[in-house]
Design a protein around this nucleic acid. Structure first.
Lengths: 198, 198, 198, 198
DNA sequence: CATGAATGAGCGTTCATTCAT
DNA sequence: AATGAATGAACGCTCATTCAT
């Protein structure tokens, strides 16, 4: 009963979620069959439907998990210590690092969102919006205190930056020439250079 | 029979391509059936398969068209007159405008690329790489002449910027508060601010 | 915990049978899942399979209960006092009233019979036949004593009348313009008019 | 190309409808799989769905056909020559004969109606109601002219009689002791005896 | 050029039942 | 007495593609 192994010890729903994440990232939601997921997890379809209401639910769980994680981290950094420049830089770098560390989730996020059912899409978007708003608040804070350029549209800056972040999945390769931290630092630098009053 | 009208005059393959683009952007490649495409175009399946080898071919054509267009425009701007700052700004703003003007193609591009067959994906990526290289050359040119910051990794700058561009499809809405030109100017400004030596 | 209430006090198998009856009548046997039954009864699947061997068994119990009831009542009436005319009228009216009072059972009876396993179907049909025979005996008694028309085929009369009775479930609505007794009287009248020597 | 055979010559949709009718009557709608139907008809599932939108559609077609047939016949008889007694007798006997001749349809009708989708059920019921109304009009005509007993509720008489007719499928066996005409005559006699002023 | 009937493999999902606890 | 995780087979349906006409 002791947690000795790694995959063997995981519960059935955990294994299903892990394999689904991997497969959705690999070939996309529509191209992944329920059969493939259960085979990868070593169970039968019935088991999957015992824990998840639908294939859609599985994808929704992936989203919920990553959104929860990122929201927590941003909240901690944004409300932490340091100048607004330091905090924005830290938040930007952090979302890059965690996006790279969970590259499968990142890939799924922007590729498969529109394959969710309309209601679930709405729920995810709402959560996402809250996350963006917290980030935008940092930009606005910097504008109010005169550190960031006042003529910028903060919402546009956020969309600009997160476009770059979401696209990491299309070009970043583990084992490539760049470490996660290197990319994170460069991206955060690029962001700060573009918003700071020169 | 003479080419007098507008929609009526479009040839069958043109109409098929137009409807396919619209539908792929709307619901994604996998969620669009061949039946829906031919119904929208007012022809039968046989006609589609007469002009296109497969559903995949249709998607490939969408990509080929937009890549051709963007490459032409970039080439013209990059090799045009003006300082490197002016040319990079112009190129960046232009790709934003054309991405917004062809928002359907933009949506398809980043959502459905991985649904192409491996060989076609490879071909599209190669073409895309050439496009990015031309853009990167502009950054390098600015670095060589001392206008842009030397410590930047030019390839990373390009990925950073095009991430933002590709994501326009997820948030930009026609009829919203921002015109294509406004977004283009802001995006190009953000880019230039982040690469220019302060 | 004392048997004070009404629904709360019912035993688990009683509650299961009651909910199954309601659901089978509502949506049919095949359209009712075991899951729905146990949820309605507030127990789990294991409990159902503890008391009933199969879903089929549950349906069989419904039949057994209603057949037992009707046989008892017919027996009492047929062997009671009064002329054969009075007894046939009373029996006919009574089966209409009890069919309406147990409309769910009536609906199930003619809709779901063929969904029982072959052996159980045979058992139910045999029981049903005995019931019909007792009814038919009343008709024959009337023919022998010259009250009912001799040229009638008694078995056909029985099938004719019970067709009408079994179909009550398709059109009778509680709260409609007709009370159970009104329908019972009219149906019994129609039967007697058609069998009595004019 | 000449219509030489019997089953071979029938078109694919005709064969599908014929086999579906037989199977639905045999084992009920829910117990008949689409796979069984297409195997019996010697085609594949794709072919079935080329001609029919759903399994439900197939059942609806069965209903539509039999309702059309019966309505035509009733209309012809009811508006024909003869006294109201003769016409009601003729109509009653005719519906029995055609119900026996199309016993499969009769079985399906009362067993599987509630397995149709709600909208289609509504459509069938509406058509059925029109049929009943035409029949009821005959009873009312007889009451107005004083031939039938005035105290009868005509709608109840119709439900009474058609209950018997619909139940033919549960007990009538081809090759049994009774011909269709014999049953028809007896049923019509029973009806007329019960409605005529003695 | 174009049709549309037909294929065949695969899809997501349901469900009665079993069994270790 | 009762749980609920898990099975495994079947279900209705979709779809890109082919091919005789």
């Amino acid at each position: 009963m002791a947690d000795g192994g790694d995959t063997k010890a995981a519960t059935v729903p955990q294994r299903l979620l892990a394999e689904a994440t991997r497969l959705f990232a690999d070939r996309g939601f529509d191209r992944t069959s329920v059969q493939e997921i259960v085979e990868a997890a070593g169970v039968t379809k019935g088991a999957l439907y015992h824990y998840f209401g639908s294939k859609d639910d599985l994808l929704h769980e992936v989203y919920a998990r990553v959104l929860r994680l990122q929201t927590e981290r941003l909240e901690e950094i944004a409300s932490g210590t340091g100048t607004v420049t330091e905090r924005l830089h830290r938040a930007a770098a952090d979302v890059v690092v965690t996006s790279i560390e969970n590259l499968d989730d990142t890939k799924i996020f922007f590729r498969s969102m529109h394959q969710l059912s309309p209601e679930k899409q709405k729920a995810v978007r709402a959560e996402r919006r809250r996350y963006h708003e917290r980030f935008r608040a940092l930009v606005e804070e910097g504008q109010r205190e005169g550190t960031f350029r006042a003529e910028l549209r903060p919402d546009l800056v956020v969309d600009y930056f997160f476009g770059s972040v979401h696209h990491l999945g299309t070009w970043y390769r583990e084992g490539g020439p760049l470490s996660a931290t290197q990319v994170a630092t460069e991206f955060a630098d690029l962001l700060l250079y573009s918003v700071r009053r020169p």
